[in-house]
Each structure stands twice: as structure tokens, then as C-alpha cells.
């Protein structure tokens, strides 16, 4: 597997990188972790004239929580940084739940959170978590920065809302309204496999009442599926077993899986429903435990 010929740049500032993209007129591609781009080059699915490696740009590796509780993830924050993070575990259980399920440990050392969003793989894990959490992406182009909602960022399979001369510089997750709960469940055939089906569930809770419910899915449609509306049946309600069942059914109905060698559409829908239930039941249980304690 040999990629087509391409030129390579490793700029040291965002401005420089954006200028190269701009000059490239759509024929230049950003490389972050390279874990999706390099395979595509080798398979000749992508044959850009120029690769713009952003790994030399300083101060993009961070992830931090602002005093108001907003989480900020820089463009070069690796999957592994989030997996090993000491700050997201309690505050962002949906992200923490996904962090060890994205790819395999080797790829996690290089692949980036933001790169994964940009890649817009319908089976990508992070896009689902971001949509469930109501996150945003900050992108920068020749004319400055703009913010795009995660749910509007993925336009289709492998197509994002980025213009050819823009770089995604940061992902933002808003603070929870109340206590943040939830999780991420993924059916994979092997460690490092993309999702056969996965669900990201993010709940903000006030006591035993759901103040905000978010959900999105990977692997069960032509793009990441936004199931925020489906799960909003939980809004203002408790996690009773009937409410859980109806939320899980609503989310499953919002999925749009295809029958393929990983299983039938019905099976995948069933997995979605089962997984949503599992996350909600475990949230309900942990809430109960806390109430007792």
C-alpha cells in the first residue's frame, strides 16, 4: 500500500497552517494523530497534494476544566490523555466511559479527540459523546474563529462542517446542570474494533429528577445519530423503570442501522435499546446508593 505523492508541511503556528490550507484550495489536508488520515492515504481513498502536520504547533495538547465547569479539549489532546485523565472521571462520566473504548491502546497514544470529530466517521465514538453532551467545536480559518454545535458539525459520512481552510482548534463541553451522570456502551467484536452499535447517554440530574437528557449513537446509521430528541422523554422525570423503558425504546426507534456482516438491523436496534437501558439502570442504581449513603 503506497500513497500517492504528496508534499508535507509541519508549520509551527496555527496562522501558518491555515495559510497553507488556504493556498492549497482544498487540496491540502490537516494531519493530527494521523490514525485515520494515514490509512486513507495508503489505501488511496484520499490523495491530497499536501499534508499539513499540526503536531508541531505548541499548546494544543491540553484538556482542562474552567472554573465554571466548562471542559476544553485542545486539538492535540490524544485519546490516551482522556483515558488517563484525573479530571473528567467524576464530572464527565460519558466521556470517561468512552475513553477506554476508542480504538486500541496503541492508537489511543496518537489519535486525537478533535481529529476524531473532524473525521466524522459514522462509527466514531467521540462524536456520539459530544452530541449527547451538547458540546461545541471551535474552528479557526483565515477570517478568525467560529463555534459550531457538535450536532451540526457532522454533516454526513466522513463529512464535517469544516471549510477546507479551517482547523478545529478546540472542543468544548458545557458544565452540567446539576449532577452529571451517564455512560457509554459499545458493542465491538474485538478491542480496537469500530462499533457495531454504541450509545452515549448523558444526564444532568437534580436529585432524582432528570434536568437534561442527551443521547447519540455510533454505528447504527450513515452518520452519528443525534438521539437527543428521542431521549428528551426523560426531561423533568425520574428514572423509573417505565420511564427507562420508554426512553430506550424511543432511542432505538431513532437509530437507523443497516443489515450487514455484523448483524441484522433488528439486532443492532435491539442492542441500542439494551444498552440505553443498561446505562439508565446503572445511573438509577448509583443514585439510589448515594441516597442511602
Amino acid at each position: 500500500m503506497y500513497p500517492s505523492r504528496f508534499d508535507y508541511d509541519a508549520p509551527s503556528t496555527l496562522e501558518e497552517a491555515i495559510a497553507i490550507l488556504d493556498q492549497g484550495g482544498g487540496e491540502a489536508k490537516v494531519m493530527a494523530g494521523g490514525q485515520s488520515l494515514i490509512p486513507m492515504l495508503r489505501l488511496r481513498f484520499a490523495s491530497p497534494e499536501r499534508v499539513v502536520d499540526i503536531n508541531g504547533i505548541p499548546d494544543l495538547e491540553y484538556h482542562r476544566i474552567d472554573p465554571d465547569g466548562t471542559l476544553r479539549i485542545g486539538a492535540l489532546c490524544r485519546h490516551e490523555d482522556l483515558e488517563l485523565s484525573t479530571i473528567i472521571g467524576d464530572t464527565f462520566p460519558t466521556l470517561a466511559g468512552a475513553a477506554h473504548l476508542v480504538s486500541d491502546p496503541i492508537i489511543r497514544t496518537r489519535g486525537t479527540f478533535v481529529g476524531s470529530l473532524c473525521h466524522a466517521d459514522p462509527q466514531g465514538d467521540w462524536s456520539a459523546t459530544m452530541i449527547a453532551l451538547g458540546g461545541k467545536i471551535i474552528v479557526q480559518g483565515p477570517n478568525g474563529r467560529r463555534e459550531i454545535e457538535a450536532k451540526d458539525f457532522v454533516l454526513g459520512p466522513f463529512v464535517s462542517a469544516l471549510a477546507f481552510n479551517e482547523i478545529a482548534v478546540e472542543a468544548i463541553v458545557p458544565p452540567a446542570k446539576g449532577k452529571a451522570l451517564g455512560g457509554y456502551l459499545k458493542l465491538e467484536r474485538r478491542v480496537g474494533d469500530f462499533a457495531t452499535a454504541s450509545v452515549a447517554v448523558a444526564l444532568d440530574m437534580d436529585g432524582d429528577t432528570v434536568t437534561r437528557a442527551g443521547c447519540a449513537m455510533a454505528g447504527v446509521g450513515g452518520r452519528t445519530i443525534d438521539a437527543n430528541e428521542a431521549i428528551s422523554v426523560l426531561q423533568g422525570k425520574t428514572l423509573s423503570s417505565e420511564n427507562i423503558d420508554s426512553a430506550a425504546a424511543a432511542v432505538a426507534a431513532a437509530s437507523d442501522p443497516r443489515t450487514d456482516h455484523r448483524g441484522s438491523a433488528d439486532y443492532k436496534r435491539h442492542i441500542v435499546e439494551t444498552f440505553v437501558k443498561r446505562v439508565l439502570v446503572s445511573v438509577a442504581k448509583s443514585e439510589k446508593k448515594e441516597a442511602v449513603a
Binding site: 486500541d104 491502546p105 467484536r189 474485538r190 478491542v191 480496537g192 474494533d193 469500530f194 456482516h261
Partner: peptide
């Protein structure tokens, strides 16, 4: 496996899985 036209499904190591120490 193969579809009706004889296209090989799984002709790469993302689809045809080699086991790793993890699982």
C-alpha cells in the same frame, strides 16, 4: 465472506479480525 457478486467482505484487517492479547 462474499456478497452475491463475489465481492469479498472483510478483505482488510479492520473487518477480518486478528485476536489480540486484550480480548
Amino acid at each position: 465472506t462474499f456478497d452475491e457478486e463475489g465481492n469479498c467482505i472483510g478483505a482488510n484487517y479492520m473487518d477480518y479480525l486478528l485476536p489480540t492479547a486484550w480480548e
